[in-house]
C-alpha cells in the first residue's frame, strides 16, 4: 500500500498576510488514482495547486512526491524545476495557452527540456545534427499521440486561441501530458463545458489514469464528474480539510453538506428559502 503513494502533503499552511488560505492541510494521493479536491469558492483549492507546482512557497508544511527514483521535496524546488525535474504538470483555472501559436506548437513547447538537451543548447539544432532531428521526430510523435487522444488532430495547425472553448480545455490537458508527468494537477477542467464535452472529459481522464499509470489531482465543482471518476475525495472549506474519503462517504458527510449549504447563515435567510435549501439535499 505504501508503494502506491505518489504525493504526501503534510501540515501544509499558506498565509497571505493575515489571511490563512490553507490551514494545516494533510492528505495523500496515490498512483493510478484520481484524487479530487472539492470545496466552495475561495476554499483554497487553487492555492494548494500553486504550492504544489512552485508558484507559491508554502508558509509551513512538507510536500513529498514519491517519484520513480525516490522521494522529492516539492516545497524546496524553485518554480519551474518542479515540472522539469519532478514531473508535476498542471492546468489552470483560467486557461493559459500560447494563444498565438498553433496547437501543435503548444504541444512541442511542452517538451522543451527534452528537446533542449537533445539540441545541445541549440548548437546541434543549428547545424541540424542527427541527434536533434531524431529527438524532434520523437516529440512530434508524442504530440500526435496526444492530439489523437484528445480529438484535436484535425485542429493541429489552428492557432490555439481560435479553438472553441472545450477544445482549449482539452488542449491544455494534452499539453500538460506532453511533459510526461508523474502527477497531473487539473484545476476545474470541466468548467464551462457542456454535458457532452464533460462526459468526454471523464473518459479522457479515466484513460489517462488507467493507461499512463500516473496520479491525478482534480479540482472540480461539477459533482457528477467528481462522483463518477474520482477514487478519493478531499473536501476543503476555509483552507481546512473537513472530509477525506471515497466519494460516497464524502457525499453523505454532514460537515460537507453544511459547508456547501452554509447552515450557519440559514437564520438570516427568509423562511421559505431556508426550507427550500433543506429540501434540496434530500431530493438528491
Amino acid at each position: 500500500m505504501t508503494d502506491n503513494k505518489l504525493l504526501e502533503v503534510e501540515h501544509l499552511t499558506m498565509r497571505f498576510g493575515g489571511l490563512v488560505a490553507i490551514d494545516n492541510l494533510s492528505f495523500t494521493a496515490n498512483k493510478r488514482e484520481i484524487t479530487a479536491i472539492i470545496g466552495p469558492n475561495g476554499a483554497g483549492k487553487t492555492t494548494v495547486f500553486n504550492c504544489l507546482t512552485g508558484f507559491y512557497v508554502p508558509t509551513e508544511g512538507r510536500l513529498t512526491l514519491h517519484a520513480k527514483d525516490g522521494p522529492r521535496l516539492l516545497e524546496r524546488a524553485e518554480g519551474f524545476r518542479i515540472s522539469r525535474n519532478n514531473g508535476v504538470a498542471r492546468t489552470f483555472q483560467n486557461i493559459r495557452l500560447f494563444t498565438g501559436m498553433t496547437v501543435l506548437e503548444n504541444l512541442i513547447v511542452a517538451q522543451h527540456n527534452r528537446l533542449m538537451d537533445a539540441s545541445l543548447f541549440s548548437l546541434a539544432g543549428l547545424f541540424n545534427l542527427k541527434r536533434y532531428a531524431s529527438a524532434e521526430k520523437e516529440a512530434l510523435e508524442r504530440a500526435k499521440f496526444w492530439l489523437n487522444k484528445t480529438g484535436l488532430y484535425e485542429f493541429a495547425d489552428w492557432n490555439a486561441g481560435n479553438l472553441p472553448y472545450g477544445n482549449q480545455r482539452r488542449l491544455e490537458i494534452a499539453r500538460a501530458m506532453c511533459v510526461e508527468p508523474s502527477l497531473l494537477c487539473l484545476d476545474e477542467p470541466a468548467a464551462g463545458l457542456n454535458p457532452r464535452e464533460s462526459a468526454e472529459l471523464n473518459l479522457l481522464l479515466q484513460s489517462i489514469r488507467d493507461e499512463q499509470g500516473i496520479g491525478l489531482l482534480l479540482i472540480e465543482h461539477d459533482m457528477s464528474v467528481v462522483m463518477q471518476i474520482s477514487d478519493h475525495v478531499i473536501v476543503l472549506d476555509y483552507g481546512k480539510k473537513i472530509a477525506d474519503g471515497n466519494p460516497d462517504a464524502v457525499k453523505n458527510d454532514p460537515a460537507v453538506i453544511r459547508a456547501y449549504l452554509g447552515e450557519e447563515e440559514d437564520d438570516e435567510l427568509p423562511p421559505e428559502v431556508a426550507s427550500d435549501l433543506h429540501l434540496d439535499p434530500k431530493a438528491q
Partner: peptide
C-alpha cells in the same frame, strides 16, 4: 540564425514566453 533558432526549442520557448510566462513555468521552462 534567427530564422533557424525560431524553429528550435529555444526559439519556440522565446515565443511561448512572450505569450504566457506562467504557463511556461508550469511546463518546466526556465
Amino acid at each position: 540564425v534567427t530564422m533557424r533558432l525560431r524553429k528550435l526549442p529555444i526559439g519556440r520557448a522565446w515565443e511561448a514566453l512572450r505569450e504566457d510566462e506562467i504557463a511556461c513555468r508550469s511546463l518546466g521552462i526556465n
